Amino acid sequence: MKKYFYLCLVMLGLFSCKQPADQEQNDLAKLEVPQEKYESFGEQISALNSISAEEMKLKYEALKPGDTIMAKFSTTVNSVCKMKGCWMTLELPGSDEEPMVKFKDYGFFVPKDIEGSSVVVEGIAFIEETSVEDQKHFAKDAGRSKDEIDAIKETKKSTGFLAHGVLIKQ
């Protein structure tokens, strides 16, 4: 009789803890977060914990030439190298600066038609001095006119970014 009593007690405990299948599905649905789709280039990175372009602008403002910081941020592509996709410039809202993004070890490129696309980049942010020769080279790659290229006459301090991974929102 005692065995039967303990068996009933155990069975009652098991059934009282079990949620109905519908309730379990509802709980799982609440945990699901719609995932944005990205195409990945370079090292595998995640969009999680990326900061906004506005926050990144503040980080750049705090940098001095020669300083570097690790960063991951989301923004929009302003321009891309039309020859190979070997660099891109990004938007920093409220700033005249457009970080020039190059890719770690020249190891990967991005598509040449992604102007206006949303991206997440992860890598090293820095302030650099860009020579006249390099500025003209980048202007030519971007498809600028001869007059625009010829107007470049002096070195320029600018924001730079060496990306080891890029995500392009689909």
Rank of each mutant, 00 (worst) to 15 (best):
M1R: 06
K3A: 15
F5G: 00
F5I: 12
Y6F: 13
C8I: 04
C8M: 11
L9V: 09
L12P: 00
F15Y: 06
K18H: 10
K18M: 15
K18E: 04
Q19V: 15
K30E: 13
V33E: 06
V33K: 07
Q35T: 14
Y38G: 01
F41N: 04
I45Y: 09
I45G: 11
S46H: 06
A47I: 03
N49H: 13
S50M: 15
I51V: 07
S52W: 07
E54P: 00
E55N: 11
E55M: 14
M56A: 08
M56Y: 02
K59F: 13
F73P: 13
S74E: 15
T75S: 13
T75E: 01
T75Q: 07
T76D: 02
T76I: 09
V77G: 00
N78F: 03
V80K: 07
C81Y: 09
W87L: 09
L90C: 04
L90T: 12
E91Q: 11
L92Q: 13
S95C: 03
D96I: 08
E97Q: 12
P99Q: 05
Y106D: 08
G107R: 15
F108H: 00
P111R: 13
D113A: 08
I114F: 03
S117D: 08
G123L: 11
I124K: 12
F126M: 14
S131C: 11
Q135A: 09
H137D: 08
F138W: 10
A139Y: 10
K140N: 10
D141I: 06
A142P: 02
G143E: 12
S145V: 15
I152F: 01
I152W: 00
K153C: 02
T159R: 09
G160S: 07
G165M: 15
Q170T: 11
Q170Y: 12
